[in-house]
Write a protein that binds this DNA or RNA. Sequence first.
RNA 1: GCGGAUAUGGUGAAUGGGUUAUCACGCUAGACUGUGGCUCUGGUGUCACGGGUUCGAAUCCCGUUAUCCGCCCCA
Length: 428
Amino acid sequence: MKYSAPPYMHDVLPTEPQKDGWLHAARWRAVESIFRETCRHYGYKEIRTPVMESTELFTRSIGEGTDIVSKEMFTFTDRGGRSMTLRPEGTAPALRAYIENKLYGENQVTKLYYIATIYRYERGQRGRYREHQQTGIEALGSADPAIDAEVIALAMEFYRRLGLGNTELKLNSVGCPGCRPDYREALLKFARPKLGQMSEDNRTRFEVNPLRMLDSKDERDRSALEGAPRLMDHLCGDCRGHFDTVKSYLASLNVRFTLDAGLVRGFDYYTKTAFEIVSPDLGSQNAIGGGGRYDGLVEEIGGPPTPGIGFGIGTERCLLVLDELGIPLPLEDERPVVFLALLGEAARPVAVRLQYDLRRAGISADMDYAGRSLKAQMRAADKIGARFVAILGDDELAQQVVTLKYLREDHHQSSVPIDSLVTWITHS
RNA sequence: GCGGAUAUGGUGAAUGGGUUAUCACGCUAGACUGUGGCUCUGGUGUCACGGGUUCGAAUCCCGUUAUCCGCCCCA
């Protein structure tokens, strides 16, 4: 009988992070700590929420007409008969927690960040998995365009710190409930006579979610919609002003962007600012992050009227690009200071205690648990990059010393009394 | 949901309808009877599973499963 990880999900291993590939836990940790650090500099605090929520939270927030809700959610009935869903995105759970815990009562503006696994029942391919991780932020309680700029700038700063300078920021405004209906009408009017030339998917979108037609990559759709009215040009005064101010703030922060009138994003809750960051160095799954403003969402799911904006960034895709380009990450040094090599059974109990003393003194230590030959233990010590090997055999025991050998630099070795090993190493 | 590919040791590959499946890396033991990084030697796999063709299949065919990649969509 063989077991494997669930389809399109994967294990992140403790293997050598220097090796090829991106499924090394050390690399993930590096990305996560760069993200945490960036958030700290921008004043965002971590929030952790359950991996699942009641299904309705997502159907209400993301929108029934989206692919994510209609066919990609991991939904099941729990033993109490409730419909539960593994979170397919990070925003709704964070807002649910914000509302439930009345965080709006603590500050006018609440700035949150999260690192969360996301679940979508999709067909996998490079950069697209049924379980993936997103690092994201949500800024709640402010409608100021300045915070739109901050959120976007934080994302770009994170990429910069990762070493991903080669990214493209795409920007759009998807309007608000005030101006979107007008635009919708204009778009429908433009598209109706061209329905025959468009793909079947787009004909469905025409009925269900017209804005999504613009997102199609199908050549027929692209040419049919050539010259279609742009939402950007139909914004109401408020949205227009907001968008212009966001753009000018971004310019003053030296954040480069390109306007993309076709950018509509995957959730229905977005209003005004919408953005996406793509990497030219990935395959077809080239979006490495995206987000936008969602001014009606908090109220929609039961909270007080509260504007908000946020983004989600795919950890795997960042890792993939970094690996592709051979960009190194700042990795933690996982090498132990001391490796205890044992000879003979009498040494084992002494080593167990000695190792404990070293660790208690803050010196990382490891020893052989496989009963291997001295030679093999030396090789093991070398392989894991220990700074010292402390050899403990019958000869040493007789004199109450260890033979301490430097594995790096000069390879010098000397006898050190067992009692003073901790001090010796602390001062070397 | 649709389409394309691949499945050989712990890993990456090679070969090939017919006696013991090749190479490298890794791991392990030894050469060096208590010492790493170099070198050499040995060990480490019945070639995903099921069925078919054949005197004979790891090699050809079909199915299953798994993985990878593209479309859709998205992180």
